[in-house]
Simulated scan of single mutants.
Amino acid sequence: MKLSKTFLVAGTLATAAALVAACGSGQVGESGSGDSGNSANSKKLALVPGTQAEPFYISMQCGAQDEAKKLGYELTTQAPQKFDAALQTTIVNSMGSNPPAALLITPTDDHAMLAPIQQVKNRGSKIVEVDTSLKDQSVAVSSISSNNNEGGKLAAQTMAKLAGDKPGSVLILDTIAGTSTTAARAKGFQDELKKHPNLKAAGIQFTQNEPDQAAAKVTAALASTPDLVGIFATNLNTGEGAATGLRNAGKIGKVNLVGFDASPSEIDGMKKGEYQALIAQDPAQIGTKGVDQAVAAIEGKPVQRQLNAELHAITKDDLDANAKYFYKQSC
């Protein structure tokens, strides 16, 4: 899941209008037709991921598109250029006069996205949360995500195996406060780390999901924490920034880096020794299950309120065996 700092509000309308197309072209953007007419919308689903052009969301869109086609529904996808509530709100608000039968959405802020999503629900759309969720659990009929708390625990267990008996501190790099998924990962990691007395948490640093800020945080941590033995990066951007910080300090391979997700750049980084482990999600499965729950809700069938997708710890030794979990850049 990818986040970023906010744009100027004045630019949001132009940004939404310029959304790029099609998972098939390698970017999460706009796909499908935009036919109007509420009676025709009974077979229309809308997917609004967290951001465009990110392998996690491309993989999620691919799974959703395939499942929608299989079930006889049409899926249209629009994504903001960055993981930003103002940009995502513009997209959601544009559905007001012509709402889909169901909206599958990755809320970019667990509070700020409540009002715009609620408005779409009030116009008759079923709401399904994919990847992230709102604090208010009364809005969505179903939420599908990885068990991010368990993912954080898995990351800590993996870090402990990498460190062995060596004592030292471990830095946690989070993204933006208020992001449900990465917050759960950080908490799960902290809780599990307490079970390994040779390792202690060096605190959580927020990076605003900017790789350069993550790199700067790592540089500062290396200077202030001489016994740093590990870094847990809660998503793609923090991981890439952490790798840059370690590279600049000549610490690649000397400080264990455990990242989240399995994007092409992260897999390449693992092959180069920049990452010692990755916690891979299954975004295609999240998309598939999201469509299944949306269609069930539309058709009046039983819906499951909470579903989890699988997580997998990958190291360089078992990289090839886990290739099926690598994220896509196009459908």
Rank of each mutant, 00 (worst) to 15 (best):
A216T: 10
S146D: 11
A156C: 11
D174W: 07
K82S: 08
A323K: 15
G245L: 08
P107H: 11
A242I: 10
K187H: 13
L173V: 07
I231T: 00
N147P: 00
L311M: 05
S59P: 05
E150Y: 12
A186Q: 12
V120S: 00
S138Q: 08
E266R: 02
A280Y: 05
V295A: 15
A309K: 06
G259N: 09
L222E: 07
K135M: 07
G96A: 11
A156D: 03
A220L: 07
A186K: 05
H111P: 01
K121D: 04
S263E: 08
V139H: 00
T182C: 04
S145D: 10
E54D: 10
D165R: 06
G241L: 03
A163R: 02
Q293P: 11
G50N: 15
Q119L: 04
N209Y: 06
T12L: 06
Q27W: 14
Q78G: 03
I176V: 15
D191L: 00
A115G: 01
L228G: 01
G245I: 06
S133E: 04
G50C: 10
L45I: 13
A277S: 07
K44A: 13
K43W: 04
A277W: 03
S25R: 10
V120Q: 02
D110W: 07
D268I: 09
I314P: 04
D66S: 13
E67H: 02
T219P: 09
L75N: 05
Q78A: 11
P116C: 00
D317V: 10
P226E: 12
G11W: 07
R123M: 13
G273M: 14
D66I: 09
Q205V: 13
G245N: 03
Y57R: 03
G203R: 13
A16Y: 02
A220Y: 00
G11T: 11
Y327T: 09
T288H: 14
T225L: 06
K69S: 11
Y73S: 05
L278I: 10
S125Q: 09
T15L: 05
S39G: 08
T181H: 03
D268L: 12
I127E: 08
G269R: 04
D261Q: 06
A233S: 15
F326K: 13
T315C: 04
T15E: 14
T219E: 12
A68P: 14
V170W: 08
P107L: 08
Q137H: 12
L307W: 02
G96I: 01
S265Q: 12
V141A: 15
L47W: 00
Q190G: 00
L222M: 05
L173M: 10
A284C: 10
T77V: 15
K126F: 07
A309N: 03
D282Y: 09
A323I: 03
I314V: 15
G290Y: 04
T225W: 14
P264S: 02
A156K: 05
G37H: 03
K217V: 02
A21S: 14
T158F: 00
I117E: 01
N235H: 14
N256T: 01
L319D: 08
Y275M: 08
P167M: 01
A201W: 03
L222W: 03
Q81Y: 03
G72E: 14
L154E: 12
